[in-house]
Amino acid sequence: MTQTVNGHGTVTTSGSGPRGGDDRLGSGVYDGPRALAEARRALRVALPEPSSKYTQDDEWCVVQQPDGAWSEFRFHDYDRIFDVPGLYEKIFYDVLGCDSPRFMVGLLADALADARIEAADVRVLDLGAGNGIMAEELAAVGVAHNVGVDILPEARTAAERDRPGLYTDYLVTDLTALDAEGSRRLAGHELNALTVVAALGFGDIPPEAFRTAYDHVAEGGWVVLTIKDAFLAADDTSGFARMIADGMASGTLEVVRRERFRHRLATDATPLVYEGIVARKRGPLA
């Protein structure tokens, strides 16, 4: 059984959302490019019944596309989701109220202001760039040089389709096996910031890929990341808890902002809590 949402039935849950908002499904925290508005309105999404519990890695929905056909999509089947214009935004922003890119860019903007650094001087490596929502939020605060990296060619295609011109460059590559040409290409951008938002801990970006991206950021550069709180726990097996904890303890990661926040809602309408970290790179990760 499924529940239809976002204009086709309403589901509510108690509690408070990020920065005092509410937890309604379809809370409308993100508008996005006008070109996608019609595509998003034409899509209908149905979620599993709220009583059905799924791990975050196994969440799914069914989607009625403009031709009337219904199809099932797992949330981590990003290649299929990116192929449908507006579907990523429909699921994660319109229905599940994701706020991570806006929230994290806000933390970064505050940190830059405190450090008296102009956003125009920041040159970002956006890891797990997807279809460009993070670059859109960064551009809104004045960051003009964004380099996207994603392992999926469908992600770059979607970014070029939905948000043309936001990325100075966009590499489709596996950072666990980055070749010399890819490394030279990244180095040529003289990157001084890394953003990794809503992409760590589920196997999409393993620690080795994060370390490679980190190594291409200049000393003193900015590191902006979100990660589910479970992946920072003592019993974490992903490798991120130790990497990040060791970086903080050694001073390699100098944390300047750290907040727990609601990344989005799960399909059962419970909040998914993440850690948001803004740090300065002060040395290599162990």
Rank of each mutant, 00 (worst) to 15 (best):
Q3H: 13
Q3E: 14
Q3I: 15
T4L: 15
N6G: 08
G9Y: 09
S14F: 09
S16R: 14
P18D: 08
R19F: 10
G20C: 14
D22V: 13
P33C: 10
A35Y: 08
R41D: 10
R41I: 00
A42Y: 00
L43G: 04
A46H: 00
S51I: 04
T55G: 15
C61T: 14
Q65Y: 00
Q65H: 07
P66W: 06
D67Q: 05
A69E: 10
W70I: 07
F75G: 00
H76Q: 14
Y78Q: 14
R80G: 04
F82H: 07
F82M: 04
D83Y: 06
P85Q: 10
L87F: 04
E89C: 08
E89V: 11
K90D: 05
F92G: 03
D94I: 05
V95I: 15
L96S: 04
G97L: 03
R102Q: 04
R102I: 00
M104Q: 14
V105A: 13
V105I: 15
L108R: 03
D110R: 15
R116V: 05
A120E: 15
V122N: 03
V124M: 13
L125T: 07
L125A: 10
A129R: 07
N131F: 12
A135F: 09
L138E: 11
A140N: 13
A140G: 14
V149M: 12
D150R: 01
D150P: 04
E154K: 02
A155G: 14
A159N: 07
R163Y: 06
L166R: 14
Y170K: 02
L171R: 13
T176A: 14
R184H: 12
L186I: 02
G188W: 06
L191M: 10
V196I: 15
A198I: 01
A198F: 05
L200A: 05
I205P: 05
P206Q: 11
E208D: 15
E208V: 14
A209S: 15
H216K: 07
V217M: 03
W222E: 00
V223P: 02
L225K: 04
T226M: 03
K228E: 07
K228L: 08
F231C: 06
A233L: 01
S238A: 09
M243T: 11
M243I: 13
I244K: 03
A249R: 15
G251L: 01
G251F: 02
E254T: 06
E254W: 04
R257T: 11
R258A: 11
R264D: 08
A266Y: 06
V273D: 10
Y274P: 06
A279N: 11
K281Y: 02
G283T: 08
A286D: 13
